[in-house]
Amino acid sequence: MNELEHPTGDPYGAKDGKDLISGITVFPMEPHVPRKADIDPKAAIRAERQVATMFGLSSLMIILFIVAYIQVPADLLITIPVIGTLNANHLAIGFTFGMAILLIGLGAIHWAKKLMPDEEVIQERHALTSSNEERAAVQSSLQRGAAESGFKERKIIRRSLLGALALFPVPLIVLLRDLGPLPGTRLRETIWDEGIHLVTDATYKKIKASDIPLGGLINAVPENLLEIEHEEHNLNQRGKASIIIVRMDPADIVSQQGEAWDYQGVLAFSKICTHLGCPTSLYQQRTHHLLCPCHQSTFDLSDSGNVVFGPAARRMPQLAITVDAEGYLVAQSGFNEPVGPSFWERG
């Protein structure tokens, strides 16, 4: 119980630029220079008028806002040099409303800076702790409350209350069930299967292998996606099953993920980046590189879809394809590995 804990009486603070306790100089005080408005009544009147003008202009802006809102046609486009062509109505109401609030702010700051009192004052700092008497009083009041409530004596109340409080968080834990159900095999499976036709995305046409030119790219989906078009979660299926088909000179193919998974240089790969699942179809036909637009992961489709650049940790899964009796592309089987980003249980 020393002086520091007993701030009663003298306030802590700084005087003459020195801390009252330590005596250390806390900040150098510049000599006070009075403002023009403080010494020249004309300057004060001028400042007063400036502030009033800003507030007045703000009112004018609000009137102009209402006029512009009513009068300027909503579909009128005007061209302003540098800024470009824009909607006159939006410009007018945005400008007037913005200026109205800006002028109120500018006026308030101008008022404070030019006219409101401008003396340097010392902000007194008091210790934050309460006095010992106050602390003792609070403590005894709490103890008296505890004794009068009978919390100690009435065991059955105490125990039932503790039980109720202990059970109270249980619903929060039960609600965690809604994070599920567990994905099961859904992260590993797509609707691709043996014999499913590859069809063009958006137009759903079967694809003849002989129609694909060298250097060609087709964004494709499985034909059975149409069967579940109206089912719930069909977008999840689309997201997982989207593929790209490319054709390259078979001599350019360095390696594939499985033997004869191509058809005469036609290769099919998942479209979903193995990093974070962005659709990846920036195929550069001369280098056979597939670039993901999100984080620049680059896959070499002529070499098993291996990662040649970027943050992706896994190669792009390849879909084994062949042709049916009429020469249309079909899947040899589903994907051999999970498509899309890695997940905890993927292994």
Partner: peptide
Amino acid sequence: TGPQSMPVFADSTLSVED
């Protein structure tokens, strides 16, 4: 024609109407 890096979208796979 698929100039430079661009892949080819031939009429056989992306029809004239498309």
